[in-house]
Amino acid sequence: MRAKPFLKWAGGKSQLINDIEKALPKEFTSQKFTYVEPFVGSGAVLFWILENFPNVEKAVINDINADLTNTYKIIASKPEQLLLQLEKYQKKFHSFEHDVDGRKEYYYDQRKLFNTRATPKVTQAALFIFLNRTCFNGLFRVNPSNGFNVPIGSYIKPTICDVDNIMAVSKVLERVEILTGDYKQTLLHTEKPAFFYFDPPYKPLSKTSSFNTYAKDEFGDNQQIELRDFCKQLDTLDHFWMLSNSDVKGKDVNDNFFDDLYGEFNINRVWAKRNINANPDKRGKLTELLITNYDHLKVEYA
């Protein structure tokens, strides 16, 4: 089985894989590369790269979310132990198929346990996956105290223990170094030539569309500017990079935030779907940005 994301994830990049493939540097398919993903999230691009490009001998991933990176590390090192716990959670959750109150009580008990951050690392990883598969829309959101606060979803018998995929993910992670913390540290673990793919917290299109509570620290405009500066540093070091972000200009034609910020680089607009919104009428197609520091075959995306 080919590895694929083991989590549901707001902003996951599975739907943009075709556009990302078109925008890869032409050298990427013919040379040995180190692949670096400083905001790894659910790893959709990571798993696609590792499964399709054997010339990538090493990958470096990072995320500020320690709960997430712990789960990656446990899948890499102790998949069988993790699966045993996931099987127990799945069996218990499915036992409440006809008991809504029991299902809710069980979910919130596990959420409370997860938020203690006091269980063994394997258990914490299992709780992370359990909550992701049973919470509303697969969101990961924390309050200022780093407490996971997403309510239960409407799932009755979700897949919580995906044995085949967990084992496939564990296999490909043998080629991956997993870091936790500031994305800038990835540069210290990188060998040339390297290809960086950035999928940072997106700049919100409106005051009500922000999912930046993914971590307890904000990722606002100043952090977007810092990230641009880091990309410029990579450019001077002759690394390749690609970056995704929201297309604020698509919402407001006078908003040139990213067009000005990355004006010296290549900015492409691609179609994407907005799937995570409590109001179904506000889901649909919109454009996002794919920005690169290299020339590639220009394709009309959007």
Score class of each variant (00 low, 15 high):
D164H: 13
K203Y: 14
F130C: 02
C135V: 12
A66F: 08
K157D: 06
D182I: 06
F130N: 02
P200R: 08
G138N: 10
D67L: 01
N165W: 12
K203R: 15
N62T: 04
S145E: 15
E87S: 13
T186Y: 02
N115E: 11
S154M: 08
E87M: 06
P120R: 04
A125C: 05
Y155K: 14
L84N: 14
E177N: 08
A59H: 01
D99C: 09
L84K: 15
D164P: 04
Q124V: 07
L127F: 04
I61P: 00
G147I: 01
F114P: 01
K92E: 15
L113V: 14
R117W: 10
N115H: 12
L68V: 03
L84P: 00
D182S: 12
K112E: 15
R111N: 11
K157M: 14
K73D: 05
V172D: 06
E177V: 12
T119A: 13
V176R: 03
V172Y: 08
L86I: 02
D109N: 13
P158E: 12
T116G: 11
K92I: 13
G147A: 12
A125P: 01
K192A: 13
V172R: 08
V150K: 05
I61E: 00
P120I: 03
P201S: 13
I129E: 02
N62C: 13
Y72A: 01
F198S: 06
A194K: 00
E191F: 01
K184Y: 06
N149D: 10
A125S: 13
V172K: 04
S95F: 11
D109K: 15
M167Q: 10
G138H: 05
T116P: 07
A59Y: 00
G138F: 05
T71A: 10
L179T: 06
D99T: 07
L179V: 07
H98R: 14
E97S: 13
D199M: 10
I160C: 06
T190P: 00
L86R: 01
F136V: 07
Y108Q: 09
F136P: 05
F93H: 05
Q124Y: 01
Q110T: 04
K91D: 10
N115W: 11
F195C: 05
P158M: 10
E191N: 13
K104N: 14
